[in-house]
Amino acid sequence: MSLVQVMFYVLAAVVVGSAFFVASTKNLVRSIFMFFITLLGLAGLYVLCLADFVAVTQIVIYVGGVLVLILFAFMLSGKENLELLQKQDNKFISLGKLPALLLAGLFFIVMVNVLGKADVDNLQWVQMTKNFMPFPKANDSTVENIGVNLMTFYLLPFESISILLMMALIGAAHLARKERGTI
Rank of each mutant, 00 (worst) to 15 (best):
G116A: 09
R180F: 13
F107T: 05
N122F: 01
A19T: 01
W125I: 04
K87A: 09
A118I: 09
D119I: 02
V114H: 08
V148M: 05
V112M: 11
M75F: 12
A168M: 15
F35E: 00
R180Q: 13
I61F: 08
Y9F: 10
N131Y: 07
T38H: 00
S77F: 11
R177E: 11
M34E: 04
F20Q: 07
L50W: 06
G41E: 03
V15N: 03
F108Q: 06
K178V: 05
S31C: 06
L106S: 14
L40D: 07
L115E: 09
V16C: 12
I146D: 10
N113D: 12
T25Y: 07
V68I: 05
F35Q: 00
E144F: 15
V120R: 13
L103D: 07
K26G: 12
A19K: 01
I70K: 06
G78H: 12
S141G: 09
M111R: 13
W125F: 15
G171A: 12
I59S: 03
L155A: 07
F132K: 02
V126E: 06
F135N: 04
G41F: 04
V68C: 07
F135C: 06
V29C: 04
V29K: 11
M1H: 14
K87M: 06
Y154W: 08
E83R: 11
D52H: 02
F74M: 01
G116T: 05
S141F: 07
G171F: 08
L69R: 10
V54R: 08
M167T: 09
S94D: 15
L115R: 09
T182C: 03
K26D: 03
T142I: 05
S94P: 09
V126G: 04
I61P: 13
A51Q: 11
A104M: 01
A23T: 11
L95C: 15
A104G: 00
D140L: 03
V112Q: 11
K117T: 00
I170W: 13
V14Y: 01
N131A: 14
L76D: 11
H174P: 02
L39P: 06
L102A: 06
M34A: 03
V148D: 07
D121E: 14
